[in-house]
Amino acid sequence: MLDLRVHFLEADGAAADRAAPVDVIVERRPGETIPELGLSGACYRRGLVTVTLDPDNPNFAASLANGELRKTLTHELHHSFRHAMCGYGFRLGEVLVTEGLADAFDAEINGGDGNRWNHAIPAEDWLGVIEQAELELWADAYNHSAWFFGWSSHGNPLPRWAGYSIGYHLVKAYLAANPDARPSQMTGTPAPEVIGQAWAHLKIRMTAEA
Rank of each mutant, 00 (worst) to 15 (best):
I130F: 12
Y142I: 05
T72H: 12
L158H: 01
W147K: 12
L135Y: 01
D113M: 09
G112D: 11
I121T: 07
P157C: 02
E108C: 02
G100Y: 09
R160K: 03
H154L: 06
L158P: 00
H78K: 13
L127W: 00
L92M: 04
L73G: 05
V129C: 10
E99G: 10
T98N: 10
Y142Q: 09
H119P: 08
F90V: 10
L69Y: 07
A120N: 04
G155E: 01
A139L: 10
S153T: 03
A146W: 00
Q132G: 05
H119L: 05
C86T: 14
S145V: 06
L137D: 08
F81C: 11
A120L: 05
A102V: 03
P159A: 02
N110Q: 03
I121Y: 01
W161T: 07
E108N: 02
G87N: 11
L69N: 09
H119M: 05
A104L: 04
T98I: 03
E94Q: 14
A84K: 14
E76G: 05
S152I: 14
A104W: 01
G100P: 07
N115I: 11
N156Q: 03
E76N: 06
E76D: 09
E68Y: 03
G67S: 11
N143E: 01
H83P: 05
R91W: 00
D125W: 10
A102W: 03
N143M: 01
G111R: 03
Y142F: 11
N115F: 12
G114D: 05
F148P: 00
R70Y: 12
L158R: 00
L77D: 07
E124N: 13
L77Y: 14
H75P: 05
A102E: 10
A120V: 03
N115S: 15
Q132M: 14
A84C: 11
F90N: 15
V129I: 15
I109E: 14
A107G: 04
S153Q: 11
V95R: 07
F148H: 00
D103C: 04
T72D: 12
D106P: 04
L77W: 10
A146M: 12
V95W: 09
H83E: 09
W138I: 15
L96W: 05
P122N: 06
I109T: 08
R160I: 13
I121K: 00
W117E: 13
T98K: 01
W151F: 14
H75Y: 11
T74V: 12
L101H: 14
N143H: 01
E68H: 05
G150Q: 09
E134M: 07
E94H: 09
R82S: 06
N143R: 06
N118V: 02
S80C: 11
G100I: 07
N156K: 02
